[in-house]
């Protein structure tokens, strides 16, 4: 069993001697903006429930909510002040996921983007996991077509990555293939339901439990395929991929010996 040492500062070897984290004012501004957005989310929900126009129009309201949620999570990533290694790996993982999604778009359900996102969240933390997921949606849709579904896919995959980070807290950072696989499998359905939520809120009338369940029933087989695909991918790829990621995020410490001792090897 591989162990992740979970310490937020660990992934930043290049900062080891760069002094304290700069930009305190910037960080607090970001945090203030994040709290403001969270408040705005609740306010929008409240207005929607109270039937205040135009927030009672759920097609508009849900889009606003999705965008606000994305903003909140983006700001969380910003506050972390990550170093070059994290910024680079998030970009690279997003590119892999998007490439996989585009290349294997022809085989429905059989593409490891969801699993990749969950795993990234698990090893790199909630924030990075979220960003990998959100960027996969943003990037692959440049080629598969942007549309009103884009923010929702960003939310879906972003939350999948976020949940991966939460799961790793549960296991104190130990890589466990089975829970990861189950989470990926669950996300096969959850992702579908989030997309259904968008479709339902925007285009189905009346908005009732029955019509939502009907929408979900319509997509059941597709979601099931996605979920089994995720399960299969994670059962096979979890161990080797987690090892690669762990090796990547391993901290490179250095020791200065001065003029003194000679290292014995």
């Amino acid at each position: 069993m591989v162990t992740i040492r979970r310490n937020r500062g660990e992934l930043r070897p290049e900062q080891s001697l760069a002094g304290p984290v700069a930009g305190g004012a910037r960080a607090s501004a970001l945090r203030a903006l994040r709290y403001l957005s969270i408040f705005a989310m609740f306010f929008v929900i409240y207005l929607g429930v109270r039937d205040v126009v135009p927030f009672s129009r759920w097609s508009v309201n849900s889009l606003l909510l999705a965008l606000l949620l994305l903003l909140v999570l983006f700001l969380r990533y910003e506050e972390k002040d990550f170093g070059a290694r994290e910024v680079a790996v998030v970009g690279a993982l997003a590119a892999v996921g998007a490439a996989g999604r585009v290349i294997f778009a022809a085989v429905p359900g059989l593409q490891p983007a969801t699993f990749l996102v969950v795993l990234s969240g698990y090893v790199l933390g909630e924030e990075s996991g979220f960003l990998v997921g959100a960027l996969i949606a943003l990037l692959s849709n440049i080629f598969l077509g942007h549309g009103p579904w884009t923010p929702w896919q960003m939310v879906g995959w972003g939350l999948a990555g976020f949940s991966g980070g939460l799961l790793s807290r549960l296991f104190r950072g130990k890589v466990r293939a089975l829970p990861l696989a189950l989470l990926a499998c669950v996300w096969g359905f959850l992702f579908g339901w989030i997309m259904n939520l968008w479709f339902w809120l925007s285009f189905i009338y009346p908005l009732s439990w029955a019509s939502y369940v009907a929408t979900c029933a319509a997509s059941f087989w597709f979601d099931l395929l996605h979920a089994t695909g995720n399960l299969a991918f994670s059962l096979v790829l979890c161990r080797p991929m987690a090892e690669m990621l762990l090796r990547y995020r391993e901290r490179m410490e250095f020791r200065y010996l001065g003029d003194g001792e000679w290292l014995r090897t």
């Binding site: 990533y77 997003a94 960027l135 990037l139």
Partner: peptide, 25 residues
């Protein structure tokens, strides 16, 4: 302007994507 690091990650992903697709093919 508001999120320096995530936009850098995004730019990187956009930049890496084409060569990755080529490499995969």
């Amino acid at each position: 302007r508001i999120s320096f690091r995530s936009s850098l990650s995004a730019a990187l992903a956009v930049r890496l994507y084409p060569s990755l697709v080529l490499e995969a093919r």
